Simulated scan of single mutants.
Amino acid sequence: MIGQKNFFLDEDIAKQFNVDRNAILMESGEGRTYRSGNIVLKHINNDSLEQTKWIIDLFHNINEDGFRVSRPIASLDGKWITNNGWSAWIFLEGNHEYKRHIPLIINAIIDFHKAIKNVPRPSFFDEDSEYRRSDRYAWGDLPNKINPKIEPLVKKLFAFRKPVEGIENQIIHGDLGPANILLVDTLKPGIIDIAPYYRPVEFALAIFAYWIGPWTGDMEVLKYFEKINHFDQMLVRAGIRMLMTKSEFNMQGDAYEEYSKSTNLIIKYLEQK
């Protein structure tokens, strides 16, 4: 693994989950995620504790049919989260080489969301954050104040937005980029690091389409999504959410150029419809 860093786990944590103290700091995971053997250990921030408990319950009980997930592992004393904020998960094998597997991934995303269709909307979705606000802007009214550098791009996309009918909100994975999908030729696609939102499944698919299409400049891949209900409108909302997230975090420099290119590709795609 390029850039991997060795890490020595505290003896207490290693004992709690019966793992070797020699671990690797994983590239994803915001510097708080480590792998020891086939176990992934995550150190949880207090502000994400409620969401982590909810995710543990979701993945502990989920029926894997057409997809794989990383299941939680209890500590030796039966806790999902230790007193000092550690959780453990089964490591999923796989790579992120999605190009040969796009139809398979689309089916796995659909199957994953079928499995969680009836999960109730949790109360922490009402919390205020840059990500939650950006999601609301993609579906509702824009705020009065937008990063002036990207405001023209947002308003261009907003002009394409239309009401949609016949789709239902449910719990979705709202950040399905290639980094959160693991592929092995002999296994079903793995879906990891859920970012939960309450939106239509079609929107989750549009997020995936955004990352492999406009973001990479490969608009040909959008042909795989033609049968998705209201796909164009979902892609518009995905583009708005991406831009508004960067506005919330005061996007600057190279990030602007990247999001500008992907947004203009979406606009060109819609203009040709």
Rank of each mutant, 00 (worst) to 15 (best):
residue 2 I to V: 14
residue 235 L to G: 01
residue 84 N to M: 01
residue 209 A to Q: 01
residue 78 G to H: 10
residue 122 P to S: 08
residue 85 G to E: 09
residue 13 I to M: 05
residue 235 L to A: 04
residue 35 R to G: 08
residue 29 G to Q: 07
residue 20 D to V: 06
residue 17 F to R: 04
residue 33 T to L: 05
residue 106 I to Q: 07
residue 96 H to S: 15
residue 116 I to T: 11
residue 208 F to W: 09
residue 268 K to H: 03
residue 239 G to T: 01
residue 57 D to V: 00
residue 147 N to T: 06
residue 226 E to V: 01
residue 173 H to Y: 10
residue 115 A to G: 09
residue 129 S to W: 10
residue 97 E to I: 10
residue 87 S to W: 12
residue 266 I to F: 13
residue 58 L to Q: 10
residue 245 T to W: 15
residue 126 D to R: 02
residue 56 I to D: 09
residue 104 L to F: 06
residue 77 D to I: 08
residue 227 K to E: 09
residue 14 A to G: 08
residue 231 F to W: 01
residue 258 E to D: 14
residue 273 K to H: 15
residue 110 I to S: 12
residue 209 A to H: 02
residue 223 K to F: 02
residue 145 K to L: 13
residue 259 Y to R: 05
residue 5 K to S: 11
residue 261 K to Y: 03
residue 196 P to W: 11
residue 62 I to Y: 08
residue 106 I to P: 12
residue 113 H to R: 10
residue 52 T to W: 03
residue 79 K to T: 11
residue 27 E to H: 12
residue 66 G to D: 11
residue 82 T to F: 11
residue 46 N to K: 15
residue 273 K to T: 11
residue 41 L to F: 12
residue 27 E to W: 05
residue 14 A to Q: 04
residue 11 E to D: 13
residue 186 T to V: 15
residue 233 Q to T: 05
residue 6 N to H: 13
residue 225 F to C: 00
residue 203 F to D: 10
residue 261 K to G: 00
residue 188 K to D: 10
residue 146 I to T: 06
residue 156 K to Y: 03
residue 129 S to A: 06
residue 217 G to T: 04
residue 204 A to N: 10
residue 133 R to M: 04
residue 253 G to D: 14
residue 113 H to K: 10
residue 187 L to F: 14
residue 264 N to D: 06
residue 139 W to A: 04
residue 87 S to I: 04
residue 49 L to A: 08
residue 21 R to G: 01
residue 51 Q to Y: 01
residue 86 W to E: 06
residue 125 F to I: 01
residue 183 L to S: 06
residue 238 A to V: 03
residue 256 Y to V: 12
residue 242 M to R: 09
residue 77 D to C: 08
residue 107 N to A: 13
residue 161 R to A: 00
residue 146 I to F: 10
residue 99 K to Q: 15
residue 83 N to T: 06
residue 235 L to Y: 05
residue 243 L to A: 01
residue 3 G to Y: 14
residue 84 N to A: 00
residue 91 F to S: 05
residue 250 N to Q: 04
residue 23 A to Q: 10
residue 206 A to K: 00
residue 33 T to E: 04
residue 31 G to M: 11
residue 168 E to C: 05
residue 259 Y to L: 12
residue 119 V to G: 04
residue 56 I to P: 06
residue 174 G to D: 08
residue 33 T to Q: 07
residue 54 W to R: 09
residue 109 I to C: 12
residue 56 I to W: 13
residue 85 G to N: 13
residue 121 R to K: 15
